[in-house]
Computed example of a mutant assay.
Amino acid sequence: MADYVVGLTGGVASGKSEVTRRFEALGVAVADADLAARDAVAVGSEGLAEVVAAFGAGALAPDGSLDRPAMRRRVFADDAARLRLEAIVHPRVRDLLRAQCAAAPGPYAIAAIPLLAEALPVQGTGAGGRAAYPWLRRVLVVDVPVEVQRERLLARDGIDAALAERMIAAQATRQERLAIADDVIVNDGPLEALEAHVAALDARYRALAGAG
C-alpha cells in the first residue's frame, strides 16, 4: 500500500509520458488519469450514459464507444461543452486514481493528472485545482515554454495551428501550473536529460515517504 502519493502534471505536449516512463523504470507505480478517463466512459458505463444524455447520440462512434476525435473538436471549440464533459468525467477519475494509488506497491506512487491545475471543485467544498486532490502529498510539474508545446503538438498530432492554440488555451497557464508545484522538471532539452532529474526526485520521494 502506497500512502505517499505524488501528483504529476504539465501542459499538453510537455513530455509527461516520458517522465512517467522513467519513474516506472525505477519500479514506481503510476496511476494515469488519461487511462482512468477512458475507463470512466467505457462502453456500458454510467459515465458514458451521462455523456450521451448531455451531448446526444452524436457523441458515440459507430461501435458504441465514445467518439473521442469528435468530442475533442467539440469541447475545444466550446468552453461550456468542455466544462460539462469534465463535470461528468473528473469525479470518476479522482475516485479511480485514489483507489489505484492506495493499492500500489512500494513506498510511494505517482498519480499522473494532466488537468490537475484545472480540476473542478469537489461538490460541497467549493475547492478545485490541487484542493480537489487533498490526498496528494506533493506535486511535480513537467514544464516547457508555450512555444515548445505548440511545436510538439503540430509535429505529434498532425493538427493545424488553430486547434493547437485552442488546446493550449483551454488548459491552465504555465504560471498557474507552476503555482501549485512543489517540484519542477523543465523538459525543453534532450530526453536523456530526464534520467538524472527523475533519479534525483525518486530518491527524494522515497526518503519523504519513509519519513512519513
Rank of each mutant, 00 (worst) to 15 (best):
M1W: 02
A2F: 12
D3Y: 11
G7V: 14
T9L: 09
G11Q: 10
V12M: 07
V12G: 01
A13L: 10
A13N: 08
A13F: 04
S14C: 05
K16C: 09
S17V: 01
E18D: 09
V19E: 04
T20M: 04
R21V: 14
F23D: 10
F23M: 14
A25H: 12
A25I: 14
G27R: 07
V28M: 14
A29L: 11
D32F: 12
D32V: 14
A33Q: 13
D34A: 08
L35I: 15
L35C: 05
A36L: 10
A40Y: 14
A42Y: 08
A42W: 08
G44D: 11
G44S: 06
E46C: 02
A49C: 03
E50L: 12
E50C: 01
V52A: 04
V52E: 02
A54N: 01
A54W: 00
F55M: 05
G56R: 05
A61S: 02
P62A: 05
P62M: 00
P62L: 01
G64T: 13
G64H: 12
S65K: 00
P69E: 05
P69W: 04
A70T: 05
A70W: 05
M71S: 01
R72V: 07
V75W: 04
V75H: 06
F76V: 09
F76T: 08
A77C: 03
A77T: 09
D78R: 13
L85V: 08
A87F: 03
A87I: 05
R92G: 09
R92I: 13
R94E: 07
R94P: 04
D95I: 12
Q100K: 15
C101R: 13
C101F: 12
A104N: 14
P114N: 06
L115C: 07
L116I: 02
E118A: 12
A119W: 01
L120N: 04
L120R: 03
P121L: 00
V122F: 05
V122K: 01
G124V: 14
G126T: 09
A127W: 06
A127Q: 15
A127P: 10
G128E: 13
G128S: 10
R130D: 07
A131E: 12
A131P: 06
A131M: 03
A132G: 06
A132L: 09
R137M: 12
R137T: 14
L140R: 12
V141I: 09
V141Y: 03
V141E: 00
P145L: 11
P145Y: 02
V146F: 00
V146N: 00
V146Y: 00
E147H: 15
R150V: 02
R152K: 12
L154S: 01
L154W: 01
L154H: 04
R156I: 06
R156M: 06
D157H: 07
D157I: 07
L163E: 08
L163V: 04
R166D: 11
A169V: 03
A169I: 05
A170N: 08
Q171W: 10
E176L: 03
N187A: 12
N187D: 08
G189L: 10
G189T: 14
L194T: 03
A196S: 04
H197G: 08
V198C: 02
V198L: 04
L201C: 10
L201H: 10
D202A: 08
R204N: 06
R204G: 03
R204A: 14
R206Q: 09
R206S: 08
L208R: 14
A209S: 08
G210R: 08
A211V: 04
G212C: 11
